[in-house]
């Protein structure tokens, strides 16, 4: 059996902020009626958090849920727990109209750390990155240069970005370029 590997296997770059291609992250795409009680209970059971409000992410330790669209959540769980979590979801949601799929290996995740992370994001995405407009707990799907991406800030001065695995290298190169020393703008810090 081949071992699961994360895209770019922990590639790192140190510019005026640090860019890291993160390791394996369990992700489950869950579609259904987000207002339904059964779905809320299932999400709570698997991730420990309530269904997040639109454009928000709720995290509890290593697990969490992010609001993707009016009928879709992205559940984050440790990579090794995906199978159990899926089983649990299917058990708890049986009989309702829903879809739960393991998308862990279809995604790449990056973390950008440092003073200028807001600028790095603002260079690449059409998102208002002022502190008052985007903060901890906010979750945004958008585009990063030419590819779809989603981002949130788990803590101040740290951004986590998810994109498709097939474009992981492109995404990493983009972030590298935006974080290159000398590229500080100093407008959003």
């Amino acid at each position: 059996m081949s071992e699961p590997t994360s895209p770019l296997a922990g590639a790192k770059y140190e510019g005026f902020a640090g860019v890291v291609a993160m390791g394996l992250q369990g992700m489950i795409s869950l579609r259904g009626d987000l207002g339904a009680e059964a779905l809320g209970k299932a999400v709570k059971a698997v991730t420990g958090v309530d269904v997040p409000a639109p454009r928000r992410i709720a995290m509890k330790g290593e697990t969490g849920a992010a609001w993707m669209s009016p009928d879709e959540l992205l559940l984050l769980v440790p990579y090794a727990d995906v199978a159990t979590a899926l089983e649990r979801l299917h058990e708890m949601l049986a009989g309702t109209h829903f879809l739960a799929v393991d998308v862990s290996d279809a995604r790449a995740m990056f973390s950008v750390d440092g003073q200028g992370v807001r600028e790095i994001v603002a260079k690449l995405m059409p998102v208002d990155m002022r502190r008052q407009a985007f903060g901890e707990g906010d979750f945004r799907r958008t585009r990063m240069a030419q590819i779809p991406a989603a981002l949130w800030m788990p803590q101040p001065d740290r951004v986590q970005i998810i994109c498709f695995r097939s474009v992981a290298e492109y995404a990493f190169n983009l972030l590298k370029g935006a974080a290159a020393p000398g590229g500080e703008v100093g407008h959003l810090s």
């Binding site: 639109p54 454009r55 669209s69 009016p70 059409p126 945004r140 799907r141 585009r143």
Partner: peptide, 12 residues
């Protein structure tokens, strides 16, 4: 109107 995001046209 579905997610409430205000963005410029390249996101649409």
């Amino acid at each position: 109107p579905c997610c409430g995001v205000t963005a410029e046209e390249t996101e649409f």
